[in-house]
Amino acid sequence: MSLLFDTAFIGTHLNYWLFVILMMTGLYIVVARGNLLKKVVGLNLFQASVFMLYISMSKIAGGTAPIEIPDPNAVYSSPLPHVLILTAIVVGVATTALALALIVRINEAYGTIEEDEVLEIDRAKSLAETAREDERDNEEARAV
């Protein structure tokens, strides 16, 4: 059978499949959603998938918590990725907080949190600026 139906392969790598699905869901939301708040949700999902990747990869089947026990044959799971992810979670929380604060400010300044409308306002402002400059350039040219 093809790789797609290789149940043994899927079964032994289930955590990675879930990681990829979650990651792509998050990325899709970031790219496809126009609402700034929903983009942050997508970003969170995307980051959470990475946390899953790190946490699941350090787990050893039958491994115990990394606290020394008298059994000489004991297998321990690696604690390092968990600690790393603790830091990454903090970074993620800080990012979310900052993003939310920015959205509040954008809502105050623009009166909307839809990306299309924000971009429209930005573009109109830039175009007006450029048009004024172009007009000035033409006047300069006429004067010369």
Partner: peptide, 12 residues
């Protein structure tokens, strides 16, 4: 105010 949307883009 365009600094806000620029910062948001940069953040994402």
């Amino acid at each position: 105010k365009r600094a806000l949307s620029a910062a948001y883009d940069y953040l994402v």
